[in-house]
């Protein structure tokens, strides 16, 4: 998952796009090490020491990992749970839609 998302973030660095994670690892120190090792450049909320039982994933009623939401510039949810090439296609389409406005 990381290589794909890393390349997407890099490819769209100069576009109005952001990948925002909500991380549910319990051990923050260990996680920081992993973020460094994997060169995870995008920002994440931390779901707290309860991990998958933390407040952010509970609020959004996340039932599986990863759970993915695509949100447009107006804050509207446009797609859910698409990965890899499909993720790229959706982001590209939403960027094109925003540019056409």
């Amino acid at each position: 998952m990381y290589p794909h998302e890393r390349s997407l973030v890099k490819k769209l660095a100069d576009k109005p796009f952001a990948l925002i994670g909500v991380n549910s690892d319990k051990d923050l120190e260990k996680l920081r090490g992993r973020v460094e090792a994997e060169n995870i450049t995008w920002r994440s909320f931390w779901n707290g020491p309860e991990g998958r039982g933390g407040p952010l994933s509970l609020e959004w009623d996340v039932m599986g990992w990863p759970t993915i939401y695509f949100i447009d510039g107006k804050g509207i949810i446009r797609e859910r749970n698409k990965r890899n090439e499909e993720m790229d296609q959706i982001v590209t389409a939403l960027l094109a839609e925003a540019e056409a406005l």
Binding site: V22, S24, R43, I71, G75
Partner: peptide, 22 residues
């Protein structure tokens, strides 16, 4: 992960992929 507060709405006007991951 650095303890800095932020909000999803800080990214309004951008296309945002919210990824619940671990």
């Amino acid at each position: 992960l650095d303890g800095v507060e932020f909000k999803l709405s800080d990214y309004r006007d951008k296309i945002v992929v919210v990824d619940f991951w671990g």
